[in-house]
Write a protein that binds this DNA or RNA. Sequence first.
DNA 1: GAGTGGTCTAGACCACTAT
DNA 2: TAGTGGTCTAGACCACTCA
Lengths: 252, 252
Amino acid sequence: MASTDGDRRPKYQRIADTLREAIQAGEYVPGDRLPGENDLMNAHRVARMTARQALGVLQSEGIAESRKGAGVFVRAFRPLRRRGIQRLSQQQWGSGRSIWSADTENRDLVVDQVQVTEEAAPEHIGAVLDLEEEGTVCVRRRRFVLDGKPVLLATSYLPMGIVAGSAITEENTGPGGTYARLADLGFKPVHFREEIRSRMPSKDEARQLGITAGTPVILICRTAFADEGRPVEINEMTLDAASYILEYDFDA
Amino acid sequence: MASTDGDRRPKYQRIADTLREAIQAGEYVPGDRLPGENDLMNAHRVARMTARQALGVLQSEGIAESRKGAGVFVRAFRPLRRRGIQRLSQQQWGSGRSIWSADTENRDLVVDQVQVTEEAAPEHIGAVLDLEEEGTVCVRRRRFVLDGKPVLLATSYLPMGIVAGSAITEENTGPGGTYARLADLGFKPVHFREEIRSRMPSKDEARQLGITAGTPVILICRTAFADEGRPVEINEMTLDAASYILEYDFDA
DNA sequence: GAGTGGTCTAGACCACTAT
DNA sequence: TAGTGGTCTAGACCACTCA
């Protein structure tokens, strides 16, 4: 009998390992309900907090997610593919298409919330955009929803000195979107820089994206440059990491 | 007196919020020790598990990290900048420099472990690389260390049919690295694709990278293509997300 | 050796979900 | 309404760190 085993790892880790292996072996598939706290207490003769800790391990690994009052379930991973470079090529926004449509791959990514305001530039924004004195910025905040689930928050900053009076200050920027309007204004973006990092979400980000424990966010900060290296837009994006794969294609 | 407040948020959340605000207000700076479990029990009149939960919130957010027997400390974030496109331009590896050296920005990023083997190709690798029948791959596994801390695991797969007998199968690939050797062999990489995602680390990844709770990993899968779109290398990288900012610069 | 975080027990009450 | 996860208490012992 191996019941009095000499394993020196914590009980909750052993329980978590058992469940993880069962998931990886296909005994539970995405969407399945895992044994609950009560099940684990009985099966492994442990206290509630210990069973709870075991389930917490899987949640913090992003393998499982709990639904209050219902149970703990195996998570699915079905991401979007976001092509970082092709999506910003001339053909895309030069020909009347909104750049975001390239994201969807026939899935239903739509704008959920839009808010356009004029604000004083945050310090880190003003330091990059060349603002005239009294420089305010046009701030476009949008949330994107995929299949009913929020997956992307985007906040775009543009110098008011450039975009005042244009459709960029409207909720609907018209065919080709913001970049086509910038081109109309003589500030056609010709170069982009995207900076990417990842971390755990703040409470506010988790709320807005409906993120469960164990899921990081990806942050993309894109700067668009017009001729002569003039920065004309900064777009700060927050992505649910479980919903995205980013792709960059380029030549040597 | 506000001691019997009507706040309906969990105690541990309120305690965590208090600490988080103190950190953001600069009362604690990176490296500082936060109040411990005992301190919080006394200060907020709660049980150990509740104080513990509060500290757990900050750790899972990546704001703090615990050191056994020592305390809970505010974390620092001092990332490397990895330039995804410039680093692979001709000048870099065409002129005798190892591409990784562009990563460092005067910081000390060095290879810590190298392992070169010949193996049967994993299924997802063989499906992308054009392997001859009996196709094995040269597998180069490396770990990179920054200031004594591991930050990057890289596993590179190359078709044995191409690289057999070359310096690519040695630990030291010579000036210009793997890509210069591929060029010598007539398979100069001319196009790259990098796919990026992020998730929480597996236990093994966390161990190899020395990752603490609350830190995701970034996964980069790079495919290098020679002429006629022939894939000649797949490099799967696992990055400590707290150590990296990725950058992609490109024209419209 | 004093203090710290890590694990664990055995209870309890609550809000929520599903039926 | 029965079952679920979420929160919380009041203890306990351990391994570890640091002075």
